[in-house]
Amino acid sequence: MHIMEGFLPVKHAIGWSIASAPFVAYGLRSINKRIKEKPEQRMLLGVAAAFTFVLSALKMPSVTGSCSHPTGTGLGAILFGPVAMAPIGMVVLLFQAILLAHGGLTTLGANIFSMAIVGPFAAAAIYRLAKAARLPFGFSIFLAASCADLLTYVTTSAQLAFAFPDPVGGITASFVKFAGVFAITQIPLAISEGLLTAVVMNALVRFNSRELQEMDVTAPQEVQA
């Protein structure tokens, strides 16, 4: 989902940066506040950030014959709320943009928007809906994390389509082309991300049940299992 350095026109690059900035600022504030109120949750915040670090470093092969990587933002979004993932995602994207020439500084805003804003908000919303629909806990986690992963890549496709409309078919045709590159490739990876998130969440439920109840992730009776 990394849009390469310089591969967004100046206006788009600035626009996406302006769009992402308030989320990052608000996310930082929300993280600071939470750590001050509940210092014992620091460890879990570390786990959420570490999970994003690992998953976004793993480039996995897909059935389309190209490689891509999961994002790992669903876990943190479910635990700490979607805005908390904006600054965490930014750290990962900065690391890759500066050291690896993967993504870029001019496209940082757009990449934050897809990976660290749209993905986490989707994850949190889908988890809420699944919980309200009384779906099993593990399945809700899986659903939220894999949809967040997929939607991140759909967002990237849309961003590129806006910037580079097809000369004949316009934005829609262009979106179909970019989605063919990103979204289709991502389907098996999104499933993998959902499964891995569920594995980590199972461990969290086992070892950190008190924190998870406090964070309103699980209801008390679910934890006893």
Binding site: F7, K59, S62, G65, C67, F178, V181
Partner: peptide, 13 residues
């Protein structure tokens, strides 16, 4: 085969 999808998107641009 198995090149990065980011590169493919670059080519598509």
């Amino acid at each position: 085969i198995f090149a990065g999808s980011d590169d493919k998107a670059k080519d598509l641009v």
